[in-house]
Structures are given as structure tokens and as C-alpha cells.
């Protein structure tokens, strides 16, 4: 699979861009948090595209963000 570059992304319609990034993020997140993958991906997709592209190239920062999302979700669920 070709890497998702900023120029390839920019060539896509705006509403497609998040979907394209999500398709890349989802399998990576699914490896770590199978049950929460859809939710975590949705949360991360609210981040700027430029930052998301950097995360796709940096497993360390992606995993840090995934763990942050899980912590936010758990705190949110604990409040309910």
C-alpha cells in the first residue's frame, strides 16, 4: 500500500480526506484496541490532517495519542 502523502490527500475532496486518513489509522488502532478502534479513530480524526499524517509516519506518537484517547474515553465513561 502506498503511503498517504499530503499531496495525495490534498487532491481528494475535503469530505473524503478524513475518510482516507481514517482508513489508514483504523487497522493500526485495531491492532492495539480491537473493541474501541472505531471510536478511537473517530476521536483522532478531529485532529488536523497535517498532524495526522505525521502520526501515520511515527508509530510512537500515534501510540501515545491512542493511549491518550483511551484515557479520555475511560474518564468520560467513569463520569456517566
Amino acid at each position: 500500500q502506498e503511503p498517504l502523502t499530503a499531496s495525495r490527500l490534498a487532491a481528494a475532496p475535503l469530505h473524503e480526506q478524513k475518510q482516507m486518513i481514517g482508513e489508514r489509522l483504523y487497522p493500526l488502532i485495531h491492532d492495539v484496541h480491537t473493541q474501541l478502534a472505531g471510536k478511537i479513530t473517530g476521536m483522532l480524526l478531529e485532529i488536523d490532517n497535517s498532524e495526522l499524517l505525521l502520526m501515520l509516519e511515527s508509530p510512537e506518537s500515534l501510540h501515545a495519542k491512542i493511549e491518550e484517547a483511551v484515557a479520555v474515553l475511560q474518564a468520560h465513561q467513569a463520569m456517566e
Partner: peptide
């Protein structure tokens, strides 16, 4: 530091990903 991530974000539905059985 408070996280900027939103726990109410819409869930993402992948088009192409299929779960390994």
C-alpha cells in the same frame, strides 16, 4: 494538561478493513 480529544466524537466506520476471522 487537559486532553483536546473529544470522547463524544463520531465513531469511524472503515470501508475497506475486514476483520480477520
Amino acid at each position: 494538561r487537559k486532553s483536546t480529544l473529544n470522547p463524544n466524537a463520531k465513531e469511524f466506520n472503515p470501508r475497506s478493513f475486514s476483520q480477520p476471522k
